[in-house]
Design a protein around this nucleic acid. Structure first.
Length: 682
DNA sequence: ATAGGGTTAG
């Protein structure tokens, strides 16, 4: 009899391992009709079979009706729930098991800790941790690795590290938990150090999981060279056929900007492209502003029969946001509604951003209002949009709501908030928020937060405080910080401090012409034309060119680009005529060219001519002759709109009765009825 | 009889 049971158990187990649910069910039915088999032993096997095959309904019904449950019964149920994404049930079953007086073993701990990891529940995780300490399982290989994984995924890397250290015999899984934990928390250097330490263990061999984690750290650092050397190890180890590894490789090369290698990796996939690596490629192209290639890659992926997912849509919508391509963005919006990807937080965030970047603040808020459960990701997007539109008060209100609804702000949230305060002149509120970051929200201020405060103080003319603040930065002040200070010096005519900032900036970013341009405008502002010339000469001699001003506009789903004095467009004659007409009409409204905006010593008439044909003016003239009547005009510009164009735009909007939205490198301008949404130009 | 880690986004 005992032997028969063993054979029966073996049969059930083979069904469980090979996923043969139907066979298992038949056997179960047969056992129910035949007499006498009601042992817990066989019932456990059947329950486990159902759980492994994903049929939780039957597993649970067996569990509920079992006359006697033992350690194995409970553990199989905990594992069954955990493997079928019913994480809360898994944890609750663990708790019920303890309440029923059955002491869990490392098996039950392992599954329950995994469930809390998926729930991202530090509270549950900590309870399991302390219980495992009491029972002495915390440093056991499986439990220890799972605990380390749980803490690192919940953001507590220091605790994860401590637990990891206590595991006497760490294996590949324990190391992966740590390497990936650092990478996912943005500490890529630490991740790669851990990877290096891992490689020093002679008895351990890097497998696909380890490689994936190490490669994602390289991706985060855009470290193409290091990634390439890991690529070589991947090939040597024979893991390169594994799809997750190839996807990590594709993403690493894409993020490092090495699209050629990324494409090569993708084209060597044995089973053709897949949606993950394809989305990485598209995002790589979008990041480097190669929209054509991004769209071509998307088209190719569809030809290959792939369906876009939430990642693909996210990148494509981001491209529309970058280009202020509202029509294409709206079309993608419709597609994500149809495909239900609208339920994804990232997709919502990027839609909120897209409408915001197209200047449609109302549509942006509407999208946000329609989100059922806003997450920290979507809140950040909303706050950032408000910040970019100069709505400081509203941004702080949104932040208060976010906190009230128990969403945890992170470092991204505070960058947006501080920028909002800076643009709206809310200096006291900004300083207060900066002060509360660490104390009230546990977010350590980073360089970018210091830079925002410097920018904020600078704009408000509090340059002494800004200078003191720059000295307080935890690490060496970066280019952004000096750039903020330099910009403020230009606005407030502070020559000496400006010279200091420019000098620092030129040393930090010699290839950036912005510092030279800013410094020359400071000199021009105080009439030191010799110095203006000297800086210009320095720029020319070192081969640094001023970034040309460009403007983009979408017409009939195609983006057109214009430069200043750019008459290469096929409809140039009509555009020129329209510009002359506009100039006459706005003169009638009192427009006077603001020639002081031209930073060079030339004749007044020449200055006027230089101003008249700035790229944004050409783009608007083109829009007026090609867009349907009444359609808002949305222009993106890579530099700042000049003061002269700013006042001209107000009047063009008035005489043409059009809404004109210009997004320049610093902010939005919403021109309507002779006014602009921004309170002060700078 | 019951247990683990990995790939793309704001």
């Amino acid at each position: 009899m005992l032997k028969e049971l063993a054979i029966l158990a073996q049969l059930i187990q083979s069904y469980a391992l090979t996923g043969k649910l139907q066979k298992g069910k038949q056997l179960h039915a047969h056992l129910l009709t035949s007499t006498g088999i009601s042992s817990t032993f066989i019932a456990n096997h059947l329950l486990n079979m159902y759980a492994k095959c994903g049929d939780l309904t039957h597993a649970l019904s067996m569990f509920d009706h079992m006359p006697k449950r033992n350690l194995i019964t409970w553990t199989a149920m905990i594992t069954g729930f955990s493997h079928n994404a019913r994480f809360l049930d898994s944890v609750l079953t663990f708790s019920n098991m303890c309440a029923a007086g059955i002491q869990p073993t490392q098996f039950a701990f392992s599954s329950a800790v995994q469930a809390t990891t998926s729930l991202r529940s530090l509270a549950f995780g900590r309870q399991l941790h302390s219980l495992s300490l009491k029972l002495g399982y915390h440093a056991e290989l499986f439990v220890g690795s799972n605990l380390a994984d749980m803490y690192s995924k919940c953001g507590s890397l220091d605790v994860a590290c401590r637990i990891f250290e206590e595991i006497p015999e760490k294996d590949e899984v324990s190391w992966t938990a740590m390497i990936d934990g650092y990478a996912k928390n943005g500490d890529f250097h630490e991740a790669l150090m851990a990877f290096r330490n891992f490689l020093d263990n002679e008895n351990l061999v890097a497998d696909q999981h380890v490689f994936c984690s190490a490669l994602s750290a390289c991706a985060g650092l855009k470290a193409g060279k290091l990634g390439q050397s890991i690529h070589a190890s991947v090939v040597k180890s024979g893991s390169s056929a594994e799809s997750a590894v190839s996807n990590s490789l594709t993403d690493m090369y894409s993020k490092a900007g090495d699209m050629e290698s990324a494409v090569t990796v993708v084209n060597t996939f044995p089973n053709g492209w897949n949606v993950v690596s394809c989305s990485s490629l598209i995002d790589g192209y979008v990041e480097m502003d190669h929209i054509e290639e991004a769209i071509n890659t998307y088209a190719e992926s569809k030809r290959q029969g792939l369906y876009p997912n939430e990642f693909t849509f996210s990148s494509l919508i981001k491209a529309c946001a970058n280009d202020a391509a509202l029509d294409q963005g709206t079309q993608l919006h419709a597609q994500v509604i149809k495909t239900s990807f609208i339920l994804d937080s990232f997709v919502c965030a990027v839609l909120v951003d897209m409408y915001g970047k197209c200047g449609l603040l109302f549509s942006s808020s509407q999208i946000f209002e329609e989100i059922e459960n806003p997450t920290d990701i979507t809140w950040n997007s909303k706050i950032n949009v408000l910040a970019q539109h100069g709505c400081g008060k509203e941004a702080i209100e949104a932040f208060d709501q976010m906190v009230a609804r128990h969403n945890k702000p992170n470092h991204v949230t505070f960058v947006s908030l501080l920028m909002a305060c800076s643009h709206s002149g809310l200096v006291e509120q900004g300083l207060q928020l900066f002060g509360s970051m660490n104390t009230a929200f546990g977010v350590e201020p980073r360089d970018e937060h210091y830079s925002c405060v410097i920018d904020m103080l600078g704009r408000a003319g509090r340059l002494e405080e800004a200078e003191i603040f720059i000295g307080k930065m935890p690490s060496e002040p970066n280019a952004y910080a000096w750039c903020s200070l330099l910009g403020a010096c230009r606005t407030h005519g502070r020559k000496e401090l400006g010279e200091l900032a420019a000098e620092k900036l030129m040393r930090l970013e010699p290839e950036n012409s912005g510092s030279h341009v800013l410094l020359s405008t400071i000199y021009a502002g105080v009439g030191q034309w010799e110095d203006v010339k000297a800086v210009r000469r320095l720029m020319k001699d070192s081969g640094r060119k001023k970034l040309p001003g460009l403007s983009w506009i979408e017409v009939e789903k195609k983006t057109h680009v214009f430069g200043a004095e750019d008459w290469s467009h096929p409809r140039k004659d009509e555009i020129y005529k329209k510009m002359e007409e506009l100039l006459m009409r706005i003169r009638g409204e009192g427009y006077v060219p603001y020639t002081a905006a031209v930073v060079s010593k030339v004749e007044e008439s020449e200055k006027e001519r230089l101003l008249r044909h700035h790229s944004e003016r050409i783009a608007v003239a083109f829009a007026l002759i090609s867009l349907p009547a009444g359609k808002p005009i949305i222009v993106k510009k890579n530099l700042r709109v000049c003061v002269d164009c700013h006042s001209a735009m107000k009047l063009i909007a008035k005489v043409e009765r059009r809404v004109i939205i210009v997004r320049d490198s610093a902010r939005f301008h919403h021109f309507q009825d002779g006014n602009c949404s921004c309170r002060d130009y700078w």
